[in-house]
Structure formats: C-alpha cells, structure tokens
Amino acid sequence: MKAPFVDIHTHNPSRSSHISVVSAFLGDDVADAEGPFSVGVHPWHSDTPIAELERRFAPYLDRAVAIGEVGLDRAISIPIEQQAALLAAQLDIAQKHQLPVVVHCVRAYSDLLPIIKRYKEVAYILHGFYANPKQLADLLPYRTYFSMGIRELQRPNGTAIVRSIPAHRLFLETDDGPASIAEVYDAAAKAIGTDITKLRELLYRSYTNLFK
C-alpha cells in the first residue's frame, strides 16, 4: 500500500485520503475539523494583544498538531519588533505544549534566526521556503524543516533549493494555491530526480516522526 500524500500546510480543507494539515486562524471554529490542523496568529495580524494569547489558544491545544502559521514579514508595514514580540509569545506556547510551529517568513530570515536560537527546543516548519544557500545553511543546525509548494518549485532557483534540502527535512504543501498536492509531489520528484512513490514514503515517515 502506498504512503499517503502529506500536505504539510494548506488553507484548503480536503476530505480526500491525503494527510492535509489545515491552517486555522486563532478564533476560527474547528469543531467540525476531521483532520489535523494548526492554529496561530499570522504576522499580518500582529496587532493582536499578547496578554490574553494563551487563554485564547487553550480551546485548541488538545487537538492542534502545530502552532501556526506564525512568523515575520518585512513586506508589510507592521514594525518587525511588534511582529517578533507576537512570534515569541506564540513560541512560548509551542514550547510549553511541545508543539511544532509552521513559520511564515518573508525577507526576514536574519530576524528569524536569533529567535530560533532562543527557542532551540521547538521544531520549525518553514513553509513556502525560498532562500539562498547561506540562509539554508544557517537554519540547518536547528530543528528546522523546509516546505515548498508549486510556486517555490517553479521559481528560478526552485530546483536548486529543493535539491539542497536534506531529504529527511523536506515537506511539500499546497498553501492557498490551486495546484493539487499530487501535482506538487510530481514537480518535486522531477526536480530532485527521484521516484514519486519513494518521495511519498519519505515525507510520510518524516510526518509521523515529527507529529508522534
């Protein structure tokens, strides 16, 4: 029996046989969620008060498999210091409850790295990953995983990046795009030069190890 496709980060709930980690926003109703989900406050919403954060997370924490998506984004007008404070507050919750985090990072890897160093025990899934070789090398010593979607794979350096990520640290995603997870796997398998069945088995093993 083939291993299922794992869609590590998506905003498109699926009732298929694939494993899809659906990204929910803090405050969303997940009562009817049938599969795994993450929950967090996106950096675009960094005006969210920190004081009541853990209380607001509490109803989700018995079912959520991860915190996220959270992170830093230098393409928006919210001060990076404000974003970093919210991120740290959510990492405190992730660390306390031993949950991995799904990270949104745009033009802010130099800001993110010192925070990761402070929270070394947390496992990070950097979604939509697209960075230069030095940034990847700087992140690899920590509990980091790197997820790519069709957009990243089709960008100019997408093939080089996916080949540079250690196989056991790679995930794939659909995010909010129209491509199916099968299409993403097909593109990644071709870029890496591997069989799609082997890729499914590898990423499923990584998933079960991370979310055990």
Rank of each mutant, 00 (worst) to 15 (best):
V70P: 00
A131W: 01
T48P: 05
A51R: 14
A51F: 11
R63H: 11
A64K: 08
A51T: 13
F129G: 05
K134N: 06
D92P: 01
S46T: 10
D32M: 12
G40S: 09
G40N: 06
A51W: 01
G71C: 13
L86E: 05
H42C: 03
H97C: 06
S38H: 09
A58F: 08
L99T: 03
F57M: 05
A88M: 15
G40P: 10
Y119R: 01
T48F: 15
D32H: 12
A64R: 06
R74N: 15
N132S: 09
R107Q: 10
L61K: 02
G128W: 12
Y130A: 07
P133T: 07
L136H: 09
D73M: 11
Y145Q: 06
S110H: 10
A94R: 03
D73G: 09
L72T: 08
A89T: 07
V65P: 01
I50F: 06
I80M: 13
P59Q: 09
R74W: 07
P133R: 08
I76N: 10
I115S: 00
A123G: 03
P79I: 13
Q90H: 05
D138A: 13
E121I: 00
V122D: 06
E69F: 08
L86N: 02
H42Y: 11
A108C: 08
L87V: 11
I116K: 00
N132Q: 14
Q95I: 00
V30W: 10
W44R: 07
P49H: 04
L72F: 11
L72V: 11
A94F: 12
A94C: 10
P114K: 11
Y109D: 06
E81F: 01
R143A: 08
W44T: 01
V101Y: 13
D62M: 01
V101P: 12
